[in-house]
Design a protein around this nucleic acid. Sequence first.
DNA 1: CCTCTGACTCAGA
DNA 2: TTCTGAGCCAGAG
Length: 114
Amino acid sequence: MSTLSSIERIWFVVNLIPKGNVLPYGVVADFAGLPGRARYVSRALKLAPQNLTLPWHRVINSQGKISFANNTDAFQTQQQLLRLDGIEVNAGKISLSQYQWKPDIATLVMTLPF
DNA sequence: CCTCTGACTCAGA
DNA sequence: TTCTGAGCCAGAG
């Protein structure tokens, strides 16, 4: 039996985000069964080991923006990775109505090992 | 136990 | 649209 820890569930959900889609921190938390813990998602991504090769760049804030300051390397990197995914990014802003991942919840629930 | 710090969020203005 | 303030919560000291 596989009981994943909170941080592992967050990593699991992030890994499911398809190329060409994005998901706000808060929604990742919801899917991971941790409602109201968007800040924990950001911490989980920071703590994620490199060997996991998570698509961390697909996680943005609820306003549809990259959460790093626009004068940082991290901001530039994330923006570039999103564009490589084929996503339109303007000054760090992404259209959530156009790119937010909206999986069939029933199917998702059966997919999650928790 | 208390304080401070975030890759956050929501409601107002 | 952008900016604030308050709320949020786990970790670190």
